[in-house]
Design a protein around this nucleic acid. Structure first.
Lengths: 118, 118
DNA sequence: CGACTCATACGATAGGCATCGTAGTACGGG
DNA sequence: CCCGTACTACGATGCCTATCGTATGAGTCG
């Protein structure tokens, strides 16, 4: 049943333009513990990671959902590389829109992790 | 029907202790446009404002709800003064837990407001 | 006391969302 | 060509929440 809109189009992942990123959306994305954890790992790595590089205590479906929320809110950038999907922070765009915010958020998260985990 | 737990106890508003404030909770509280607006006005004023000082496009009930979410997440402090209820930012506690975060958030919100509104 | 104001509580409603399971699609290798 | 791996899509479910309207409590002032 070759559909009129081929599923192959799904390979093109929709990202919001830089001007369409909203602070509320970013904060909402980061207000979920699982997503905050993903972002922290991405920031710690500095480069790009595949979805399966994360060992999250949720199913694959839920992981996909969280990555989509992060992408649609403008926090991460996703690109395909073969079967894998690379995930990277959109720190350039975020720093341009909200200078210093991402660093402050990551610092706050690290501080809280140290306080609660240590 | 004088209840065993008198309603007068409602005069004591429950605030989370400083150590119980969670970054995720703060971000979630600020991810709502109405609440972000409230916090921005509170920061702009610098002092304490009553609930009715805000002219929000929602009903009184909803306003009360938002103030409670802000209080329970540790973002604001509420105290009674006669019939009025004064609201103030918990910037001291927040700065202690997450140094610089509140300023970054307010700066980001101001920047976005300038970008979209101007 | 009585009326008025400020804010809360409660019930209802509608929408959003985090989670899962299963089935399906794309890509690479034997 | 078939299979395995990586990710996605879809439907279901249960919870959370933003919103409202109305009724209630608490305090002030005539």
């Amino acid at each position: 049943m070759t559909p009129a809109a081929p599923a192959a189009a799904g390979r093109a992942l929709p990202h919001p333009a830089r001007d369409e990123i909203r602070l509320e959306g970013v904060l909402h994305a980061l207000s979920d513990p699982m997503r905050l954890r993903i972002v922290r790992e991405l920031a710690a790595d500095g480069g790009e990671l595949t979805c399966s590089d994360f060992d999250l205590p949720v199913t694959k479906s839920t992981t996909t959902h969280h990555f989509r929320v992060l992408r649609e809110s403008g926090v991460i950038r996703q690109t395909y590389r073969g079967t894998a999907k690379m995930n990277g922070l959109r720190d350039d765009d975020l720093d341009d829109l909200f200078p210093g915010l991402l660093d402050s958020l990551l610092a706050a998260a690290a501080r809280q992790a140290a306080r609660l985990g240590g």
